[in-house]
Simulated scan of single mutants.
Amino acid sequence: MADEHKPTKKMAANAEKGLKLRDKFDRGGTEVGVKRAKQIADGGPMSDADVKSMHSYFARHKVDKDTKAHSWGDDNDPSAGYIAWLLWGGDEGRDWAERQREKIGD
């Protein structure tokens, strides 16, 4: 099916890590982000609409890397933005969404 995109194993690992950090620190991500993380961790498949949603998320949230509260990339005191970013597949998810979005066009 042309409208299916399969997330990578690294994206799945990032999503799983995000879910664990969210449980541990009780911050980061929304219910939408948690749902997306579970979808990625389960290996998809993801629709064109999912890809467009991910592409939009990463475009809106790249500014979260500049946070001063807690730390980006720190597993001992992660920022809410870092946890949310992982839920969406992390940097690999961003790169993947960009590649998939280009294939979709429009």
Rank of each mutant, 00 (worst) to 15 (best):
M1W: 11
A2I: 09
A2P: 14
E4G: 08
E4N: 11
K6Q: 11
K6R: 13
T8P: 07
K10H: 04
M11V: 08
M11R: 09
A12N: 04
A12P: 07
A13S: 13
A13C: 05
N14V: 01
E16M: 12
E16G: 12
E16D: 12
K17W: 03
G18L: 05
L21E: 04
L21M: 11
R22Q: 13
R22E: 07
D23Y: 14
D23E: 15
F25G: 08
F25R: 04
F25Y: 14
D26S: 09
D26W: 08
D26C: 02
R27N: 06
G28F: 00
G28S: 05
G28A: 03
E31R: 05
V34T: 10
R36I: 05
A37Q: 00
Q39A: 15
I40C: 01
D42I: 11
D42A: 15
G43C: 13
G44S: 10
P45T: 10
M46K: 02
D48N: 15
D50A: 08
D50G: 09
D50K: 10
V51Q: 01
K52E: 03
K52Y: 00
S53M: 08
S53N: 12
M54H: 02
M54I: 03
H55N: 12
H55L: 04
Y57K: 01
F58S: 03
A59G: 11
A59W: 01
A59F: 05
R60N: 04
H61G: 00
H61N: 12
V63Y: 12
V63L: 12
V63A: 10
V63H: 09
D64W: 09
D64N: 10
T67C: 10
K68D: 15
A69F: 15
A69Y: 15
H70C: 14
H70E: 13
S71Y: 14
S71C: 14
G73P: 04
G73W: 06
G73A: 13
G73Q: 11
G73S: 12
G73C: 11
D74K: 13
D75T: 15
N76I: 15
D77P: 08
P78N: 10
P78K: 05
S79R: 01
S79P: 09
A80S: 13
G81M: 07
Y82E: 05
Y82C: 08
I83N: 00
I83T: 06
A84N: 08
A84P: 00
L87R: 02
G90Y: 01
G90Q: 05
G90E: 02
G90V: 08
G90D: 04
D91C: 01
G93N: 02
G93D: 02
D95R: 00
D95G: 06
W96K: 01
A97P: 09
A97I: 03
A97N: 02
R99K: 12
Q100A: 13
R101F: 06
R101M: 08
I104K: 03
G105P: 07
D106I: 11
D106H: 06
